[in-house]
């Protein structure tokens, strides 16, 4: 798996965000490089939720941060409105013009407490984007908008707006983060593991709020998680990543019903209550994830893959279609 290629990219007017050949590398020590994301391409249609799933070190969070250019990717393109007259490649923008585009793409982080400045009040946190971008600096229209988005995420503005973050629970802090992100009417909301730091009884609240926000404000979501169950629940389309490469892309239910990549099968079989569509023995792979500093040749999953053959070490698999809107990068997919 762990393949390259761009056949999975769709070519229609509805595509709002397209990522082409994204590469993110970080230098470590002397002459060594972490290959965090290596040649990853995907796109997201307007109003769609794209899930990105994988284990730690698969590059999913790095990809999310590369989308917002924090930091800028090593190479590749991140394009808004591809193919239209308004096409913008965010990777080519300079500091101030990048800043002008930023409100279109907002982000929610994993750690709800760390996401909010402990020294500022909720009203100022949520209104920050409005104060930056509107002429009415903190005036009545800002106040009204802050109240509106706080209400939308289920926080009572009268009670909460003048408090500081430490007075709130993790779930409430995550609601405030969502309110801050949607306050400036973004088109795309990137959610980086938004529920994995929360108690189980609170996760569904946040997932439902995200669905509500999506419907209410017409958002397009990129949802990143290590939990395949959560990703399936919120996503229309899912990208499975491993060690900086894409393994498989397909509809959320398609991936579950007809997993084509051996690694997708592993993920499905590794859930606490394994999926019925895979054999529980599919989870039997080694514990050792190879180092992203020195990833395996050919297919990066081959060192743990039950179907690996000689070809997997010598030749990197390319993305190819195995069904309607279903792509896999594997020489020996479990689905022809």
């Amino acid at each position: 798996m762990a393949g390259s290629g761009t056949v999975q990219l769709r070519d229609d007017a509805d595509v709002l965000l397209r990522v082409e050949n994204l590469v993110m590398e970080f230098p470590v020590g002397r002459h060594q490089v972490v290959h965090a994301v290596s040649d990853v391409s995907f796109d997201v249609r307007r109003g769609e939720t794209l899930g990105i799933v994988g284990e730690s070190g698969c590059g999913k969070s790095t990809t999310a941060r590369a989308l917002v250019q924090l930091p800028r990717p090593t190479s590749g393109r991140v394009i808004l409105d591809p193919g239209s007259d308004l096409e913008i490649d965010m990777t080519t923008l300079s500091g101030s013009s990048l800043r002008q585009v930023r409100p279109r793409m907002q982000m929610i982080f994993q750690d709800p407490i760390s996401s909010l400045n402990p020294r500022r009040r909720v009203r100022d946190i949520v209104g920050e984007g409005l104060v930056i971008w509107q002429d009415d600096k903190g005036g009545s229209s800002t106040r009204a908008r802050v109240d509106e988005v706080l209400n939308a995420v289920g926080i009572e503005p009268e009670v909460a707006a003048d408090r500081r973050p430490h007075e709130f629970s993790g779930g409430q802090c995550q609601r405030i983060s969502i309110a801050r992100a949607v306050a400036i009417e973004p088109e795309i909301l990137i959610c980086d593991e938004p529920v994995s730091a929360l108690d189980v009884s609170v996760q569904a609240q946040i997932l439902n709020i995200l669905e509500d926000m999506k419907a209410r404000y017409g958002l397009t979501l990129v949802f990143i998680s290590h939990d395949l169950s959560v990703v399936r629940n919120v996503s229309d389309r899912v990208v499975v990543m491993y060690l900086g490469k894409i393994c498989e892309i397909g509809g959320a239910d398609t991936l579950y019903l007809e997993p084509a990549h051996p690694y997708t099968r592993v993920l499905l079989a590794s859930a606490p209550e394994p999926a019925a569509t895979v054999d529980p023995s599919d989870a039997a792979i080694g514990d050792e994830i190879p180092s992203p500093i020195n990833p395996p040749s050919g297919c990066r999953f081959r060192t743990r893959c039950p179907r690996a053959a000689d070809r997997c070490a010598s030749e990197e698999p390319q993305m190819r279609a195995v069904g309607d809107d279903h792509f896999v990068a594997c020489h020996f997919p479990t689905l022809a």
Binding site: R65, V68, L70, R99, Q100, R102, P103, M105, Q106, M107, F109, Q110, D111, S114, S115, L116, N117, I125, E128, G129, I132, W133, S177, R180, A181, I184
Partner: peptide, 11 residues
């Protein structure tokens, strides 16, 4: 992350 959030907002 609140610093990152602020940058994403365009501060």
């Amino acid at each position: 992350e609140f610093v990152q959030a602020s940058r994403v907002l365009g501060a």
